[in-house]
Design a protein around this nucleic acid. Structure first.
Lengths: 194, 194
DNA sequence: CAGCTGACAGATTTCAATATCTGTCAGCTG
DNA sequence: CAGCTGACAGATATTGAAATCTGTCAGCTG
């Protein structure tokens, strides 16, 4: 045996995710994480100053997984309008799948995101940054009208809040959401074209 | 003294509002309401079958106050675009004032609305109905393009969720919301014009 | 000596006993 | 007799003592 791997931040994050999945956000403790890793809880504090920092790091990891997928779409080199549609649809689909597949885990992350406004702010800035790139490409190509791509991107993000903000997750399972999503996207895209 | 007025549903609702304001949603009991009215709690149950029904009635009353104001704007006979702008701005302002003026009371009503989905659904149906009337007027006047005014109205409502849905209340105090609101309204109105 | 441990103080959570509340209803009262 | 009361059973909430957790740090270990 003696599989005494050294303790890394990465291993702690993985263990924390597992503990959160098992126990939920209310009952997951640093002691639980340490126990899962076979170390004392003091060692965990060597890598993360506080429990809040540990949780924020787990949250960032989770959010980053979505950002990466979307970045792949935003960076594509094709019709900006189709790219924008795909990006918004991918965001909606990703969120909806996370919420629908494992509601308990999603509820856990809703608590976590509620705790770390800083991390969530960063994530939203990243997403609107991707949106801005698409809008700018559309303006350059002459298919979108916008005096301020960053502002338009933010407006797009806000106008579609209902389809990506976790606080609306309950509505994502209702029949007809797909159509509602299409209707809103059609509306804002028509607005973007000028 | 001897001001022994008869016990009406209306008096009970007023007393319940007061008790909710004083104690908050978690600690407001039917017994409190009865005490405030100087009657036994059994009498309250003569007018409302359950505590949940009483709370739902209070919630409906609160929501209806907003509906009425907005209905005044929706029913005006003038430029549909200006009317739509005013209606959306009035909805945002009304919600924002409620949330900002008395955060605790607003939090109370957030709990109440969370409890009675039925009443909230009715309220939303009423609001989108008003929106539909405005959109239809715009289509008739030839300034809006929409194959399905009810669907467009719902899309407008959803696209502006961030500026009227209570779950976003925290964002309404941030600097710059006004501009964000304007940007979204401009975007969707341009979309509506076709 | 870099990395880990485990005891510790103060803060937070748990748990079970106790109190209060919800909803009903037989009977009182004007 | 229409409207109200108040006692009651079961459900829910409060409370405070005991258990656990967070974050620190002096010292152990390889």
């Amino acid at each position: 045996m003696g599989t005494t791997e050294i303790l890394t931040a990465e291993r702690i994050l993985a263990a924390t995710e597992e503990v959160l999945r098992r126990h939920g956000p209310a009952k997951a403790t640093v002691v639980d994480v340490a126990r899962a890793l076979g170390v004392s809880h003091g060692s965990v504090y060597r890598h993360f100053r506080t429990k809040a920092a540990l949780r924020a790091a787990v949250t960032k990891r989770w959010l980053d997984r979505t950002s990466e997928v979307l970045d792949g779409i935003a960076a594509q080199d094709r019709d900006p309008e189709a790219r924008l549609r795909d990006w918004l649809a991918a965001l909606f689909t990703a969120k909806r799948r996370k919420a629908g597949d494992d509601p308990e885990l999603f509820a856990t992350y809703m608590v976590l995101t509620g705790e770390s406004g800083e991390v969530v702010g960063q994530h939203i800035a990243e997403l609107t940054g991707q949106l801005t790139a698409i809008v700018r490409a559309g303006v350059d190509a002459g298919v979108f009208a916008s005096a301020d791509p960053a502002m338009s991107a933010l407006a797009l993000f806000h106008a579609t809040d209902r389809f990506h903000d976790p606080c609306h997750a309950a509505a994502w399972e209702e029949p007809g959401v797909e159509d509602e999503f299409e209707a809103v996207v059609d509306l804002v895209l028509r607005g973007l074209r000028g």
